[in-house]
Simulated scan of single mutants.
Amino acid sequence: MAGRPDVAALQRILHNEWGANEHVDWAAAAARLGSSLPADYRHFMAVYGGGCIDDLIVLPPLPTGNGWQASISGHKGGFRELWAMEGGVPGVDLGADRVLPWGSGCNANEMGWLMAGPDPDQWPVIVWRRHGEPRWALFDCGMAEFLRRLMTAGFDECPLSDLSLWGRVGTFVHHEEQERRFHAGLDPMTGEPDPYAGMFD
C-alpha cells in the first residue's frame, strides 16, 4: 500500500500526529464484512487508524475491544436500513446489501461506499445527508479523496448537510488517544481540561 497518492495528498493537509496504526487483521475483516475494502481506506487505517476528524467519525472495520469506537461491522445494519428506507441514490438500482459505511457524524451525516462492482478500489463514495434533498448522493471518488476535497472545498458544493469541515481542515485524533484524554479529565478532541469531567460517570 506504499505510495498511495490520494492518502499522501490527504496527509499534506491533515496531520497524523494523533493517529495510530490500527493493526487491522484484514483477512478477518473481509470474512466478517463479506468483502475486502478499498486500498486507500486500508492505508488510512495504517496511517491514522479509526477516530475522529473533529465531529466526523472514521470507522475501523471491526470492533476495537475497548467499546470507545464504533466500527463498520457494527454500523453496517443501520446504514443499510437507511438506504432501504430512503430509496438510495436516485437512479441507482442496487439493494441495501451493496452499501457499506465508513464514516458518520457532522450533525448526523452518514458516509459509505456503493459496492458497485468486484473491485473495491472502484467503489464510489455515497453520503446520506440529514438535511436536504435528495438525502442520498454519490461522489465518484474514494474515501481519502472525499475527505481531502471536503476540507479544501474541492466539490461544487458541500457534500454534507453540515458545513463544519467544508473548506476547513480539522484535527484527527485516534480513538485510543480520545479515550486516554477522557479518563484523564481532558476533552477527547482538544486535549484541554474538561470542566465537566467526572460529572456523568
Rank of each mutant, 00 (worst) to 15 (best):
G117E: 09
V127M: 07
W128H: 15
P134W: 07
G154D: 08
W123D: 12
L160G: 06
G95C: 07
H174F: 02
E133L: 03
M115D: 09
R98S: 14
Q178W: 00
A153T: 07
L160K: 02
M143T: 08
G88A: 00
A144T: 03
N107M: 13
M111N: 09
M85G: 01
H174D: 15
L150Q: 08
V99K: 07
S104N: 15
W123I: 09
E177N: 00
G132L: 08
Q122W: 11
R148H: 08
G142V: 14
C141I: 08
E176F: 00
A96N: 01
R98H: 10
G91H: 05
H175C: 06
L100H: 10
R130K: 12
H131Q: 10
A96Q: 06
H174V: 06
G167L: 02
D97G: 02
P118V: 11
G167V: 04
H174T: 01
V125S: 03
C158F: 08
P120S: 11
A96W: 01
C158T: 14
D93F: 13
E157P: 02
R148L: 14
G88C: 01
A153K: 11
C106H: 08
A84I: 03
G88Y: 05
V169D: 04
L138S: 12
P120H: 12
H131L: 13
R149W: 04
P124S: 15
R149I: 05
T171I: 10
L82E: 05
D162C: 13
W102L: 11
T152Y: 08
M115G: 09
A96H: 01
E133A: 13
R98Q: 15
R181W: 03
M85W: 10
M85P: 00
E86S: 10
A116I: 15
G105D: 07
D121S: 13
P118T: 13
F146G: 07
V127F: 03
A108L: 08
F155S: 02
N107R: 13
L94P: 00
V125T: 15
V89D: 03
T171N: 11
P101K: 04
D156H: 12
L165K: 09
V89R: 06
F146E: 05
E176H: 03
F172H: 05
L160F: 12
G142W: 06
F172M: 10
D140Y: 05
G103Q: 07
E179C: 00
R98L: 07
G170V: 09
D121M: 12
D140K: 13
W136F: 15
A84E: 14
G91A: 04
D162G: 08
N109F: 04
L163F: 15
R129F: 07
R168E: 05
R130H: 15
E177T: 00
P101G: 08
D156T: 10
E81M: 12
V89N: 03
R148W: 06
R135P: 00
E179Y: 00
R135S: 14
Q122C: 11
D97K: 06
W102H: 13
F139K: 04
S161K: 04
V89F: 02
Q122S: 14
R148P: 02
R135W: 06
H175D: 01
V89E: 06
W166Y: 13
R181L: 03
P134F: 07
V99C: 04
P134M: 13
F172W: 08
W136I: 03
R98E: 09
